[in-house]
Amino acid sequence: MKTFIQHFVHIHAQKVLIDGVLRYEETATALDFPAFIRNVYKHFEMQYPKFYKMDDLSKLAFVGAELLNLKKSDVYKSEDKGIVLMNRSSSLYTDALHQASIADKNNYFPSPAVFVYTLPNIAIGELCIRHQISGENYFFVQEHFNPAMLTNYVSLLFRQKHIQQCICGWVELNADNYELFLYSVEQNSENAVKIVDKSPIFASLNLEVDHILNDTDNIKKLYKL
């Protein structure tokens, strides 16, 4: 069964790319992640007060998913939509904050609002609430981005009819770095991004009438964009 990439978003090194096109670049040097992601949120005029309550991993996933432009092509029932995410550091960045709050026995105040984010799939929960997604949801943790595992499993979910649309990708955040590569996949190509730009990177993709097939090779190439 063929599935197609609707849109894809990259966020890393103070840059935001949508469908491979640079759409935002932070000019201030070495801005910390919270300040950077807040700027992106404001730049794209996002409106979701709960954003400010999320931990950094969820903020990254949230902003990435907003930029996928899901509204435009949203014809699926909530239960037919899924999310499959992957990263390296799970929720360890937030875990460290929680651990720090219990390190000193004389100043022992673990925070409920921090603790609830000490699971990577909370980011999925946030996206499910925002985009009303109630189908299959997975968080895989791998030492390195594993496009084969991701693509093979997402394809299985489509083949076995568990889902008809899916948000997928790599959402990594740790103390030193952040890297998001998020994409949406669906069975129909109608809403899929069209590749008219034939620059070398796009020219090497497996396309079907200008649409990007969701396969391991393509995902590997798009990730590196």
Binding site: E79, V116, C128, I129, E136
Partner: peptide, 21 residues
Amino acid sequence: AISNDANHISGPSRTGEGLTL
């Protein structure tokens, strides 16, 4: 099958919607 309540990150759905699904 796996589902999501799409309701709250720590409080389970009052209606059991997700698990029912």
